[in-house]
């Protein structure tokens, strides 16, 4: 093994409208039959996303940008785009901060 080198500029995603988010490897969204609800599985933890959070996570398909996701939800809920945008970015940033959501273009090694 070569000596431990400096980190490869490891920086987690700063979520912006032009980000293309996807779930990181090791982050799984699935429907849990036993509990009859969606769960988000991450290392050492289980998260219970509510209905809207599930919808956002399902839209993180590695193709849509954050702007696309916000547009989609604003139309679907006939709600102000600003308000939706703030909520979507806050939620995704929270997950990106722990590495659970990553930029799709850099997702796979």
């Amino acid at each position: 093994m070569t000596a431990v080198t400096a980190p490869a500029a490891r920086r987690r995603l700063i979520v912006a409208e032009d980000s293309v988010p996807t779930l990181a490897r090791g982050t799984r969204l699935r429907y849990d039959e036993a509990r009859q609800r969606w769960v988000l599985l991450v290392p050492e933890r289980v998260m219970a996303p509510d209905e809207i959070a599930v919808e956002i996570l399902q839209l993180c398909d590695g193709r849509r940008s954050v702007a696309d996701i916000i547009d989609h939800l604003a139309a679907a809920y006939a709600a102000p785009r600003d308000e939706i945008g703030t909520d979507v970015i806050a939620m995704l940033q929270d997950l990106a901060g722990s590495g659970f959501v990553v930029e799709a273009r850099k997702a796979t090694p």
Partner: peptide, 23 residues
């Protein structure tokens, strides 16, 4: 709309207690 993610951790106390009790 404010999406929420209820978090359960095996290591740390979580006052909401997440998914421990569902039935």
């Amino acid at each position: 709309m404010s999406p929420t993610l209820l978090d359960t951790s095996p290591v740390f106390a979580d006052p909401t207690d997440g998914l421990a009790i569902l039935e």
